[in-house]
Design a protein around this nucleic acid. Structure first.
Lengths: 247, 247
DNA sequence: GCCAAAAATGACCGGCCGGTCAGAAATCAC
DNA sequence: GTGATTTCTGACCGGCCGGTCATTTTTGGC
């Protein structure tokens, strides 16, 4: 009967790799340092993983799956909420209970996304500031820009319907929402203690909410009458751009 | 009499280096590729520069000086503006002509900063996404966080004076302003044609302005009376947090 | 054309480090 | 203790690339 692997070797190597990757980047992290941190030889690394890069690739894919799960959850819950009826300009103007529910939904999803960033903060550190010139170069930045584009497109649609301010290019709005998350994510990478992510999410939502609503004069239009008289028109009114719904 | 250096060699090497650095990062950019792009030998590089890293270091210092000049200009012009009198809550509420002047000043400074980002977009690309594990690792991120802290501190002071919303932690507000710039700067690094930076600056300012003002009920306090009766109190009222005054 | 000086060349050097693999060590059933 | 199997070791290999430097080439004054 053969020798058994040390029960904790693999996990220890993964943990040590994450520490080194987060600290020195993909290129700077050395296999020898990783294995030394576990009291193992350099060659032992390759009993568990095909290469340094493929270990990192596996970590990235895990992170991406967690992030995709966040996007999916947000989409599913938002669609279910709106299936019960759209958010009207009146909801927005008066901050109706129903609108508040939507804001809370978004806030919860934002917090969830920040939780993922916290959990994978070593991987995120590499993807943000250490991936240039590596096969993973665009991974996070592409996800960031996709999300910024989604936010921008929603914002643009609302502008066309006159329920969001029109003096701001949608791209800039999207950049604001997503850029903020980016900086917060980068901060997470350097923190030892976990901050209050709920508070972060709530505050972002509050700023974006107030920052994106149209000027008060917009609501002087008899919006309430309209939404009552034309259900099909109410359909077009949809929800606000979910401006806080960034990665 | 000795041979003269080819007149354009040094400049050509700098240009080629910037292209390679922006594309592949500090580690991925190879001296051999840089020199080949200029039709020179590898050894010729070292006739002009002590090392690859020191060339990049010089570029970084030039960028930092340009950025510091932006910060200084903003500070100087804002102080000169405020030396003629503070911005009052009434200015903010009514968007007075004087307040508009301040917003325009800030907008101009923002545009100027974006111009610097555009000019040094290759260096910025490295500093944002390629500096992990190199001697330049914290360079831009530290400047980013310093600026975010400055914005946050101003915001905090205004909160204490009741002229900015109090439901948002200053750190998050700072992150929003500066994070947006970060993402925009990253976009600049990947653009071939220069975008309309004025428009970007104006839009950011507009979002931040509206997003950060206190709820309308705050202004129901007889603010005008106060500011008239107590000049020393007016001093404390100061300006709004310059929320758009990010890097 | 000659000469001196500097630019320029590119083969070479040596450090770094990911990855390899022959041999050693450990494990467990018998 | 033996034997088979697997884990583990660390010296070694080889590619990469920044930097070096002996040699070649170029330039400009005389």
């Amino acid at each position: 009967m053969a020798r058994r692997p040390a029960p904790l070797s693999r996990a220890a190597l993964i943990d040590a790799a994450r520490v080194e990757l987060g600290r020195r980047g993909l290129r700077g992290a050395r296999v020898e340092d990783i294995t030394a941190a576990c009291g193992l030889s350099k060659g032992a690394f390759y009993l568990h993983f095909p290469s340094k890069e493929s270990l990192f690739g596996a970590l990235v894919r895990r992170f991406e799956r967690a992030l995709d799960a966040c996007f999916k959850s947000r989409r599913t819950r938002t669609e279910a909420f709106l299936a019960e009826g759209p958010i009207t300009p009146r909801d927005v103007e008066q901050v109706s209970p129903r609108y508040k529910l939507l804001l809370e939904l978004e806030e919860g999803e934002d917090e969830r996304t920040l939780e993922v960033m916290w959990e994978y903060r070593d991987v995120v550190a590499v993807l943000i500031s250490g991936a240039q010139g590596t096969p993973f170069e665009g991974t996070l930045w592409k996800a960031v820009e996709r999300e910024a584009a989604r936010v921008a497109n929603e914002f643009r649609a609302q502008q066309a319907q006159g329920i969001c301010r029109t003096d701001v290019p949608p791209e800039v709005f999207g950049a604001m929402m997503v850029g903020t998350y980016l900086l917060l994510a980068h901060r997470l990478c350097r923190m030892r203690a976990k901050p209050d992510l709920r508070s972060w999410a709530r505050s972002l939502q509050a700023l974006a909410h107030q920052g994106s609503i149209p000027p008060p004069s917009t609501f002087s239009i008899p919006v309430g009458t309209k939404s009552k008289s034309a259900p099909s028109k109410a359909r077009r009114t949809q929800t606000r751009p979910s401006p806080r719904s960034s990665p």
